[in-house]
Design a protein around this nucleic acid. Sequence first.
DNA 1: TCTTGACCTTCCAGCTACTGGAAGCTGTAG
DNA 2: CTACAGCTTCCAGTAGCTGGAAGGTCAAGA
Lengths: 137, 137
Amino acid sequence: MFQIGELSAKTGVSPKTIRYYEQIGLLLPAKRGGNGYRMYDDTDAERLNFIRRARALDFALDEITEILAFRDRGIPPCKYVMSVIHDRIDAIQERIRNLEQLSDELAALYDAGQRLPEDAQMRTCVCHLIQTETNYP
Amino acid sequence: MFQIGELSAKTGVSPKTIRYYEQIGLLLPAKRGGNGYRMYDDTDAERLNFIRRARALDFALDEITEILAFRDRGIPPCKYVMSVIHDRIDAIQERIRNLEQLSDELAALYDAGQRLPEDAQMRTCVCHLIQTETNYP
DNA sequence: TCTTGACCTTCCAGCTACTGGAAGCTGTAG
DNA sequence: CTACAGCTTCCAGTAGCTGGAAGGTCAAGA
């Protein structure tokens, strides 16, 4: 049994965040020592590591909550997890496409600004470039 | 002069958001008609379009506020905008790299789940795959 | 004239996933 | 005895909106 700081060290999740997870019900209320301190064991560390890895995979906390609920009841949530993974991949791909377009547009803007001579930069102003009407989705 | 709904239609920014922008000082307080309704003109539409395009370029609202403050004072904020653009491009590139890694990891997870036969899926559970220790940054 | 419905107003609350800070208790080392 | 790290709770804030309640305004139609 160890305290929240050690759990934090084992999992790389801050104590603040651990308490927050408990507060929102993602973690079950921790056992308390005689001094009122939260006490954890390896099971807790494993559960929190699961959460951390799922978070690193960009799962939302409520998705993780649902997955853990399945897991707690001993039901393998394969289909559910698979569909969540699928949705997430799609969402990430779209986000990447948007960001790439965005990056291109910003780079074009930046290049346009760079190509101006110093004094013209002061007059022409990149704001002007932003002001030109373009269709952003 | 037109109402908030028309400004919304002209710019593609929702009335809610327009009021919010006014509330946080991104838009100056609108003139009011005799009925208390906000009244706008083309200048307002242009300013809001500027904001919308800057937002589409992923500028933060406080960055836009600063840029507009320069613009309002007639000072072309070229250097400032250029540095903001530069920072933003960097940030976007890094975000894209992270998302691509994430996408790859999820795809691997998904493929692993797909390769299981139907009944094994029910037993082996993709959760197990998430549980395997890997180093996510 | 009355009613309907689409506008508009304000204010309050909530979303995600935390994070910061205050005020105070506990435990250990010097 | 005192310092200091670590723990507790609670309150509030972050970004950028969005939803909803409760109510005022206005034009068109029966």
